[in-house]
């Protein structure tokens, strides 16, 4: 770098081989840098994700001291920390005595704007939902986002019967243990949350602890 010059390349036309070589070299260097930074940051990123998940699981399942990732394989639940695609997992929550308290089930489905993904706590033997946490949603700010900002709505999932299925009803018309008040002005988002949980229940209830007693009209399709 001796003096100012406006030429960007050598005067003569470079050969194709040189162009290919330059690009490959650039790609190689870039790949090396990216792999290095990926390896450096990966532990922090996974640790944060695990911690966030742990927080959410402990929130939706009261009285839990430890958790285990369970996958449904060959007709039964087994412990596995390996993340494989196309595999559905729930999180088993265990009390201080090591007894199973309930399951935290991740579920997602369409909301008013975009997919809502959430985690909810389920105690299959008591036939009730014990909590709900929205993990990601893009509902309308000020209206639909009340599904996680409205404390009353979130609290209504703390003890909610799941038989025959959960229903969102107009505010103030709640009359049964399986009903909850929909948010005024965000009926569609409220119903979307309820529908997502009902669908996940349909899918998971037959798989979880099949020995526990079942309601007569349990969905089993």
């Amino acid at each position: 770098m001796t003096s100012e010059s406006n030429t960007t390349a050598t005067g003569s036309e470079p050969t194709s081989a040189r162009l290919v070589l330059t690009l490959s070299l650039a790609g190689l260097l870039s790949g090396l840098i990216i792999v290095t930074i990926f390896e450096v940051t990966l532990p922090t990123i996974t640790a944060y994700k695990a911690q966030e998940l742990r927080k959410a699981v402990f929130k939706v399942l009261p009285g839990v001291a430890s958790m285990k990732r369970l996958v449904y394989r060959d007709g039964e639940l087994s412990h596995s920390d390996e993340e494989l695609p196309e595999q559905e997992a729930v999180y088993g929550g265990y009390g201080a005595d090591g007894q199973l308290v309930g399951y935290a089930i991740p579920a997602e489905g369409p909301g008013f704007q975009d997919t809502i993904s959430l985690l909810y706590g389920l105690m299959p033997d008591q036939r009730k939902v014990t909590g709900m946490e929205i993990l990601a949603s893009r509902e309308t700010p000020g209206l639909g986002d009340k599904i996680y900002k409205d404390a009353d709505f979130v609290a209504s999932f703390l003890s909610l019967a799941i038989d025959p299925e959960i229903r969102a009803v107009k505010k103030g018309r709640r009359s049964a243990p399986n009903e909850l008040d929909a948010i005024t002005g965000a009926t569609i988002s409220s119903k979307a949350v309820v529908r997502i949980i009902n669908q996940a229940n349909d899918q998971w209830l037959p798989r979880l602890a099949p020995s526990s007693p079942r309601g007569a009209n349990d969905a089993e399709n």
Partner: peptide
Amino acid sequence: RRWIPKQIRISCYIIIIATFVTV
């Protein structure tokens, strides 16, 4: 800038930018 042949300069710029973005 002296080592980047001008025929492939845009590709090179993008590789450089993309690397910084990923980092």
